[in-house]
Design a protein around this nucleic acid. Sequence first.
DNA 1: CGGCATTATTGACGATTCGTCAATAGCCAT
DNA 2: ATGGCTATTGACGAATCGTCAATAATGCCG
Lengths: 198, 198
Amino acid sequence: MMDLGPRRMTTEARREQLLAFGRRHFAEHGYEAMSMDAIADRAGVSKGLLYHYFGNQRGFYMETVRSVTDEVIAITEPPAEQPFDQAFRVMVTCFVGYVQEHSAIYAALVRGGLGSDTEVNELLDRVRTTTMSRILERLGIRRPSALSQIAIYGWVSLIENGCAEWTAAGGASPSRLIDFFISAFEPVLEVLQSEQRS
Amino acid sequence: MMDLGPRRMTTEARREQLLAFGRRHFAEHGYEAMSMDAIADRAGVSKGLLYHYFGNQRGFYMETVRSVTDEVIAITEPPAEQPFDQAFRVMVTCFVGYVQEHSAIYAALVRGGLGSDTEVNELLDRVRTTTMSRILERLGIRRPSALSQIAIYGWVSLIENGCAEWTAAGGASPSRLIDFFISAFEPVLEVLQSEQRS
DNA sequence: CGGCATTATTGACGATTCGTCAATAGCCAT
DNA sequence: ATGGCTATTGACGAATCGTCAATAATGCCG
């Protein structure tokens, strides 16, 4: 349906091809909307091949999601040399840029448009906790209080869902969006500082 | 397994009983972790009865989720007589209180611990958009800009996920949490005011 | 070039689960 | 009591999941 013949590929190449297909497919159709037979047909391979590479239906979905979250984590790495304010802005800007480019799959993922259970949420949470750690590290905070962690976590949720809503609404003028995200961090910073003193 | 005999109940009473069971069951086991046969067995009724009341497996799950989101919307209605600041605080406080009491089901829902696809997210979004409308109405803003809506939406996501993280971390000292949520609204308010002028 | 070993790929199969529906059984009115 | 209404049941057909022995494409080596 998609490929030409059942050409024999190397394991790695086939795997990458199937994951790329998975992103497109799940972004459009979601999880469990189609049977594995139908998915395999659309991908141009046999059902057995999908099971061979990913174990089961969920495995295919999970690996696809992981390929996205890993990419987000890699792209939002803040530059090491710059001072906090600049590095922070770069991080936010890169995140918004990524969502803008990959809005189909990522916005759907954040907004729960795709099937998201405990296991999927663990992958999304890895993005959030990684971002938290980077911020805390840059600020030199080694042992944040419970409230501090909740504050940062809440802010990360704000930019995630704000971005998702933004792309859904057309995705115009990212600069003002970024400015708002940064200003929204101010109350968080205040919590961090007051908690740090005590 | 749960009930005594297959006593014949009124339609409404049976429905309420099954929904109450659904909350407990899905909070603990999630969606699609068990077959309908197993769920019916645990509920102490036949599988056919579940299908009779809710149409299909997803129907049972969706109705259960809806019973929760409807309750959240009802409980977070801000008092009409008081000025904005006070009404706003009451609303936030009620929300935190609800999450604290029903943390098992609601935190799981927000954090994606339960299966959440497009349809489920529509129900969760109804909570968010209702909160947005209430805030805008109280502030007398009739036609908010796109950025204004995104800002409020992001803030609502912040308190939702912040609460979920808070209960997961033990759920102590809600007053400081509430104070943070209210202070986190300040940047949103600035956006609303500046957008309103233009 | 040709035959062989390796392994990527397939499709039919058994097991499980979804959702249906005719049959059953409890409750109320007369 | 008894008869009608309807809440409730469980066996059935259809569809899907995941497995596995068979197949075929590729590369290697003589």
